[in-house]
Amino acid sequence: MKNLKSSLNSLQEKARERTVKTQDIEYDLETLVKRINNNTIKLNPDYQRRHRWPNDVSSRLIESLLLNIPIPIVFISQDIDVDDELLDRTPRYTVIDGQQRLTAIRDFMTGSLILSGLEILDELNGAALSDLPPFLTRRLDDRTVRCLRIDSTVDPQVKYDIFERLNTGSVKLEPQELRNAVVRGAFNDLIKKLSTYSDFRQLLQISDKELDDNPKIRKMEDVELVLRYFALRNGGYKEPRKLGFKDFLTEKMTEFNGFSSEDIFNMGEDFKFCISAIRKFLGPYAFSKHKVENGVSVKRMSTFNAAVYDAILIAFSDKNNVSNLEEKKYTSGGFNFKNISILTDKQRLSLFEDDDFFDAVSGSVNDLGKIRTRINKVIEDLS
């Protein structure tokens, strides 16, 4: 506490910057649904998360409304970057916390949610809004949802902090879902698009038959892996940083959103080139982890490993200086892979016999020392 007096100015400045102004707003369900449908309350699942509430969870929320059980406050923001006024000059709001709840309410009130999994009002299982008896529809007419409006802030890191602290839903937002909500822009759109690239999905072992159920997709881990590539490439993994890795990725995403449309397009082509080359020369299990003895895999420990992904992908990109690779051309027949340095499958397997490399692809995937070690090890093999 001795230094508190000397840091008073800094403390006051932080308190001013981080203080959030709020306002209570209460909507009846009919008004709430109208505002969602006319986009004055933005409820786009792509904006926040890839919708993950199962039908029975949504149904239990409706049951709570019917039983007059309080539900959590919904947090909304009148953000500068989305506050385009409509013709009637009504401002738009975006949802910070409560998107799943509002989606469930909207779906039930518009007839698309059929109740299931109810234990108290189990007689309503299989019922839609139109099936409810009059005394229950009157209860819904009387229910309101309390919203807390948070004033906008231009600092994406502050926004991220607000989202994280208010992330109180029954299914927690993952780090990339939070970034998707607060660090919007052209680069964010790019990495979501790149996450659907067919070669990338094959390397991540994502089958087209399980897109709706794959946890990498539902939690936006696939999108975060694309972001990792751009954050770590071109020597980014060597950068000294005071931030934790989670905040480092958020900072990089904010930076890339400010790039020109041409630069962002070229970044996408760079990523596809690297992924296509690795898929072509190392096969669909290029990012798998192995236990290797005498140059032979005695056990494949995983079909995809994020640390192995870092090591091979970033080393390939940086060693070949992909952003400036003159030989890289895309035609209707695919990329031109002339004059590139890439591991052979034998070299890839031999990496796992190196104790330092094996340790660097084990444990925490975000440990800075391990990230540097594993990428440098692969670069050495490419030399």
Rank of each mutant, 00 (worst) to 15 (best):
G169E: 01
R52W: 03
G333F: 13
N167K: 00
E262F: 02
V82F: 11
F75K: 09
T40R: 14
K42T: 10
L282K: 00
T90W: 12
N257M: 09
I96P: 11
K159D: 15
E177D: 13
I114T: 13
E63D: 08
G169P: 12
Q99G: 15
G126H: 04
D213Y: 04
P70H: 08
S260C: 07
L136D: 04
L382I: 07
D122Y: 14
Q99E: 08
L211G: 06
P134I: 13
I105D: 02
L173Q: 01
Q78L: 12
Q23G: 02
L325P: 04
S116A: 10
V82I: 11
M220G: 05
L65A: 02
E174A: 02
D79Y: 01
V378C: 08
E26I: 14
D310L: 06
T303D: 11
E221F: 15
P215C: 01
S10F: 09
T254M: 02
L368R: 10
F163I: 02
S261D: 11
Q347I: 00
I312W: 01
I217H: 08
D107A: 11
D381M: 11
F304H: 09
R16G: 10
Q78G: 14
R143P: 00
E239V: 15
N257I: 14
R218H: 05
R139A: 11
E221L: 07
N37C: 02
N294L: 05
M1D: 04
T344G: 08
K272T: 11
V223L: 11
F271M: 06
D56G: 01
E210Y: 09
Q157G: 05
F187H: 08
G235K: 02
R60D: 01
L67N: 07
T168L: 04
S297V: 12
T103R: 15
L203P: 02
Q12Y: 01
G236F: 03
K328V: 06
H290G: 00
D270E: 15
E262V: 05
F163C: 06
S332K: 14
D213L: 05
E119T: 09
D79W: 02
A286D: 06
P134M: 09
